[in-house]
Design a protein around this nucleic acid. Structure first.
Lengths: 125, 125
DNA sequence: TCGAGTAACTTGCAATTAACAAGTAAGTTG
DNA sequence: CAACTTACTTGTTAATTGCAAGTTACTCGA
């Protein structure tokens, strides 16, 4: 788990924006977490509840990575039982179009897939 | 290398179009091959020439997968020395918007990345 | 106050996948 | 005919994933 440098400079395969983007989100799970965030999920256990059943160690690692890349921020939303929530940053919200184009491609070309209508987010109770 | 079924039905983690799309293109290399196809590359050795230096066994496997999913078609473009070219299908061309949104995200958020202007394709020599 | 429960992780492996180097087959060129 | 090229395949090692179980901190009900 050794990082290559102390700084936030990460390894890049090339200067191509597609390749560099894939270095960050190019795996089976990362964008699913981002999708869940767009769907209004905020906590570790909410992510675990998704139908794809992400392994817990992978979820933890991906959340850490997403925080390192400043796609999400982790903050406690209550103390005593300290509980954390993960929120999309502006950088993370900018992944929305990537997700949307995947939804469009999937719905057009992969039979049996169907995006859910995301209910408008309510104010926190 | 055993497939789960004889038919072209592939395993899906869920009915979510994002998850199902990621089941196909959710890795570090697949979309780079698609990017190269959009950039006008057509042959195995042209893909190998890209700056990310994809391992040859992975390139072969990904091309096979892309053909199975009908994102590309493989066809010989000359006999005698049989040489193959890979071409995007309509389904593959529909991945263009996914690539474009990644370019936009990368250029905005990943310093040092820069999309190349793709030169107009010349006639085959 | 004890025991069960919950959220958010961590740890330990086995199994799968990726990476790297080398080798192969068919055909062409000097 | 020896070297070269394209398009792969094979073998081996390294890294990553997936699954199960364990941990920590705190709450709640009997």
């Amino acid at each position: 788990m050794a990082k290559q440098t102390e700084s936030s400079e990460k390894f890049k395969r090339s200067s191509c924006p597609v390749a560099s983007t894939l270095d960050i989100i190019g795996d089976k799970w990362t964008l699913l977490v981002v999708r869940d965030l767009f769907a209004g999920k905020r906590t570790y256990s909410e992510f675990q509840g998704s139908p794809e059943k992400i392994p817990t160690n992978i979820l933890a690692e991906r959340l850490k990575r997403l925080a390192e890349y400043e796609i999400v921020v982790k903050k406690p939303y209550q103390h005593h039982p300290v509980r954390y929530e993960y929120l999309l940053t502006a950088k993370g919200k900018d992944l929305g179009p990537v997700l949307m184009t995947m939804v469009q491609w999937g719905e057009k070309h992969l039979p049996g897939t169907k995006a859910q209508i995301i209910p408008a987010k309510e104010a926190k109770p």
